[in-house]
């Protein structure tokens, strides 16, 4: 059982939804970013998504674009992202870590080399935005073979004829993108999301986490009430961008996780 499967099984037993946080590795700098990531589990985060910065994040809104630019300006590389995971794993062997980003830096490093290095560093899963099921042989299949979960995005445009393709070769959970749009944009209501979560859960047999547009503890609680997990990224990153210190960022995260877990 992978760390991700174990986490979702444990939460299910407790009757809780998962809280998944997204931060950009290296934002605003390596040390601060590592301190924030290390503090996330104590703030109640169940699954950590760590962004791999890229110059051209075509599915992201301004908050995550700028986070990536800050990280790159600070000298972040894919190799340093893996180093950050390795440092995190020194003290924490149970919280799943998922790397999220775009394909080119991985392709540039070499898929075989990346997959081996990620596994070795303690990465559990990958979300690569620009690799749809049609391109599974690029990274999804090699990642699966190495024991990494390849987590897929499902969206409002993923209709029932397409869902089986999305379900194929995926594991861990499905990330349901609640809106057609970019990260940090408008939010979807729980009432609208609930039937979609059911649809995706039935087709894939996997837990469904919902993200894009969740910004407040209230929204976090609402979504957690209808899904297996809730993902928050831009709202946390905006706090980092505003220069809040690590304790203050983590306190905000705690307010989100408590809301989600209480739902």
């Amino acid at each position: 059982m992978s760390r991700i499967d174990a986490k979702f099984a444990a939460l299910k037993a407790e009757g809780k939804a998962a809280f998944v946080s997204f931060v950009m590795a290296g934002d605003p700098d390596y040390e601060t970013s590592l301190a924030i990531v290390k503090g996330l589990p104590a703030a109640g985060v169940d699954v950590i998504e760590l962004g791999m910065p890229f110059t051209d994040p075509m599915a992201d809104g301004p908050a995550i674009q700028l986070a990536g630019q800050r990280a790159l300006a600070g000298g972040m590389t894919l190799g340093r992202v893996l180093e950050m995971v390795r440092s995190f794993r020194v003290d924490d062997q149970t919280t799943p870590i998922i790397l999220m980003g775009y394909y080119n830096p991985i392709y540039s490093m070499g898929v075989e080399r990346f997959v081996a290095a990620a596994k070795d560093a303690g990465v559990d899963g990958l979300i690569v935005v620009d690799l749809p099921p049609e391109e599974d042989d690029e990274l999804c299949l090699p990642a699966n073979a190495a024991g990494l979960n390849f987590i897929r995005l499902a969206t409002p445009t993923t209709d029932d004829t397409r869902l089986p393709a999305v379900a194929r070769n995926t594991s861990g959970f499905v990330y349901y993108v609640s809106i057609t749009g970019i990260t940090g944009a408008a939010s979807a209501s729980a009432a609208r999301v609930a039937p979609e979560v059911d649809r995706v859960r039935k087709a894939t047999g996997l837990p469904v986490c919902v993200g894009f547009g969740v910004k407040t503890p209230e929204a976090s609680a609402e979504i957690a009430g209808v899904a297996d997990g809730v993902v928050v990224g831009s709202a946390i990153i905006e706090r980092i961008a505003a220069g809040e210190d690590t304790a203050s960022v983590l306190a905000f995260v705690k307010s989100l996780t408590e809301a989600a877990h209480g739902a």
């Binding site: 049609e134 391109e135 995005l153 445009t157 397409r162």
Partner: peptide, 12 residues
């Protein structure tokens, strides 16, 4: 070549 796009765009 190929189709390296996000899931939202794939059906389009």
């Amino acid at each position: 070549g190929g189709r390296f796009v996000s899931e939202t765009l794939m059906p389009l």
